[in-house]
Amino acid sequence: MQDSRQLRRNANMNYLRRYWTLYLLLALPVAFIIIFRYFPMAYILSAFKVNNILKAPWELPWAKNHGFEWFIKAFQNRDFLFALRNTVTLNLLDLLLGFPAPILLALLLNELTFKRFKRVTQTIVYLPHFLSWIIISGLALRLLAFNDGLVNIVLQRIGLDPIPFLNSPGHWVGSYVFLGIWKEAGWNTIIYLAAITSINPELYEAAAVDGANRLRRIWHVTLPGLRPTIIVLLIMSLGRILGSEFDRPFALSNRLVTSVSNVISIFVYEYGIKGMQFSLSNAVGLFQSVIGLFFLIGANSLAKRYGERGIW
């Protein structure tokens, strides 16, 4: 007994002596996460309290209605309910149209045989990812404005009616989703292309020998090979169904379409940050996170039930 314990301790010591530098390397990112991701969580408390930035969260008095004052306030606010609706709608559309886009694009890129052309195309489709939404909204205005936008000028010159891309709520949603796909689809292909390279080429050869044409090979080899990656990314994007970007809707929006463009992050900005009601915005943020967590767990267990690996 004594000996084996001694032995185990020695083994542990040896292990530490050999790898302590790696642990040291790890210490910094762990410290970062603890300090900037976990410590601030103490301020979740302020979602249930009367806010006062000059005091620590545990010193604050509880808010009215057993601490749920801010949640009640949010749900009584019509703007919040609209924001909730818009967030869900825009995110669902993004999921429906934006999620398959990079998969399709990756499949197309993968089928290109002329390597140099493939590489150039890849670089070009990545580029928009590096533009900020502010720049893209500027481009969108120059291109899509109802009267002065380039696209509409062209349409009018060839005798068509101009299209209110940014002026009518319906069209705006379309422009919003389209611009999102245009910006991110290329970048998001990276992970799929990487997954495709790990598919065993013998499978393609075998399929070819069996007489499968290109489409059949994509359907029966490439896509099944991508399935685990697709599932993981799908689960993660379901976790963000209530999350909302700020800069994209904020930059693209204008006064004519606020009925569909005001999302939760904009609500938080207007009431919470600008109006300095930090507890309210904290409550909304907490609500978003909790729902997001439910979706994440739900999607994960669903994936597992159907025999996939899930994300944990």
Binding site: R255, L256, T258, E270, G275, L280
Partner: peptide
Amino acid sequence: VGMNTSLNNKRDTFLT
């Protein structure tokens, strides 16, 4: 308290 931004945005929006 805290209503300035949201009400101003509402005003600009419906006037526009």
